[in-house]
Design a protein around this nucleic acid. Structure first.
Length: 442
RNA sequence: UGCUCAGAAGCUCAAUGGCGAGCAGCCGGCUGUUAACCGGAAGGCAGUGGGUUCGACUCCCACCUGGGCAGCCA
């Protein structure tokens, strides 16, 4: 493509030459005879210097008048300068204002959470969101590459779904031409039939949970990537999950050094990550959580004590993973606390072949999955036990009626992974426009 | 939904029951700044409603709005 301008990331190829840059004014400082304009164009930042003797009086005056976030065309000479961040500066010859920045609400200073997210559409221009969202971009691309390279076929699942798959309380309800419909909370039920057609499939899209969660680990709309594989059993699923996570981490370390550094992410732990990960059963985890040490921690934190048979709480997950570099896989869960479609363990029918993968450093669950029940009658029985509307599951049951095979899959929350890799505190930073119980704007 | 914290200038925050500052914006100064610096003017019915008091941003009650934590889960 023929261009008459260059990007900031390309400045190294143009040292000594006069170039045209296009972007936004991200910072400015001025003195009597010299003005510093920091330009941002999406590929980087560069400081442009307007010196009174090198530009016309009009241009010098204009450089002083510019407000933050004004869009600009800058013409000037590229100079290598040791004083410059990034190594280059622009000796400005000419400035052209495209759009005045006005009184830009986001200032180079601290702001409150509410203000920043009320202004998320403008906050995206700041460095921190850009670093996080670039890492998100890499995570998503790595996921797609991983599955593509291994012959998985992308099967997009519907977002508008007819009936409650796992109970309606956590689903957003909507009206579908007079019929009740729900926003999907998982593509899994649609992937299981698809894996009987393509063998290895995955879906990747937004999913919706109407839970009134108010924590740093929850969004009402988030992105989940879900593989589903025919003839795969729990052991193979563990291998797949570990290989998958290792691949993503390696890709981000390889290609996102700059944003990781900007976020001041200590990557020493991430660099250790490679399959296999430590694995334990629910019973083994319970053993640790019922230990003296763990119980004491829970009392001190005022957290509810762990009880055998129950799900893991946030502190439980932290106790199991803190100080560890590798994620932790937990399998063989009590069937009462897991979904109806999970395959029972052969040697212990009270346990199901579920898999949770906990990120290290207390970042919590990033993957949840299982081997699925492939026996028609057993699945039908489970649907009945869970008081689910049998008629809504007829098509799902048919996967088991016609040439059923053991199969397994999992879902990975993209924002959870991004939050962990970035080492940031809150999931809302990891998605461009977060949706939370108290946030539907912008 | 429960517990907890907080609502004051466009933004971020001080102040024993008797209203202040920084940043942004405006005016002016400075040839190397890195959230630049220096000077000046301007900017306020303190979330809403009630109560206590000579007097309430401050103490009490209710409500509203949001943050943090918990549960639920990715």
């Amino acid at each position: 493509m023929q261009r008459d301008h260059v990007y900031i990331s390309e400045l190294g190829e143009h040292v000594g030459a006069e170039v045209t840059l296009r972007g936004w004014l991200s910072q400015k400082r001025s003195s009597g005879k010299i003005r510093f304009l920091v330009l941002r164009d999406g590929t980087g930042f560069v400081q442009c210097i307007a010196f009174v003797k090198n530009v016309s009086p009009e241009t010098f005056e204009a450089a002083g008048q510019l407000s933050l976030e004004s869009s600009l065309v800058v013409r000037g000479t590229v100079k290598a300068d040791a004083r410059a961040k990034g190594g280059y500066e622009i000796d400005v010859r000419e400035l052209e204002l495209i759009g005045d920045g006005g009184e830009f609400p986001i200032q180079p200073k601290e702001h409150g959470v509410e203000f920043l997210f009320d202004n998320r559409h403008l906050y995206l221009r700041s460095r921190t969101p850009q670093a996080v969202l670039r890492i998100r971009n890499e995570v998503v691309q790595a996921c797609r590459d991983f599955f593509y390279e291994r012959g998985f076929v992308l099967i997009d699942s519907p977002i508008l779904t007819p009936a409650a798959c796992e109970g309606t309380t956590t689903l957003f309800e909507t009206d579908y031409f007079g019929q009740q419909a729900f926003l999907a909370q998982s593509g899994q039920l649609y992937l299981e039939p698809a894996c009987m057609a393509f063998g290895k499939v995955y879906c990747f899209g937004p999913t919706f949970r109407a839970e009134k969660s108010k924590t740093r680990r929850h969004l009402t709309e988030f992105w989940m990537i879900e593989p589903e594989v025919a003839f795969l059993e729990l052991a193979g699923l563990l291998d797949l999950a570990e290989e998958f996570v290792s691949y993503i981490v390696a890709r981000v370390l390889d290609r996102c050094a700059e944003p990781l550094e900007f976020l001041e992410r200590d990557t020493s732990g991430l660099e250790q990550i490679a399959a296999p990960f430590p694995r334990m059963t629910y019973d083994q985890a319970a053993e640790i959580l019922r230990g003296e040490e763990a119980q004491k921690r829970m009392r001190e934190a005022g957290a509810p004590p762990f009880e055998y048979g129950g799900d893991l709480g946030a502190l439980d997950e932290t106790i199991l993973t803190e100080g560890k570099d590798l994620p932790l896989a937990i399998t063989h869960w009590p069937k009462e606390i897991k979904s109806f479609y999970m395959q029972p363990a052969e040697d212990d029918p009270d346990k199901v072949l579920g898999l949770d993968l906990l990120a290290p450093e207390g970042y919590g669950e990033i993957i949840g999955g299982s081997q699925r029940i492939h026996d028609h009658d057993l699945l039908e029985q489970r649907i009945r036990e869970h008081d689910l509307p049998m008629e809504a599951f007829q098509w799902y049951l048919e996967t088991r009626r016609y040439g059923t095979v053991p199969h397994s899959g999992f879902g990975m929350g993209i924002e959870r992974v991004v939050t962990w890799l970035c080492g940031i505190a809150h999931l809302r930073e990891a998605i461009p426009y977060p949706r939370q119980i108290h946030r539907l704007y912008p």
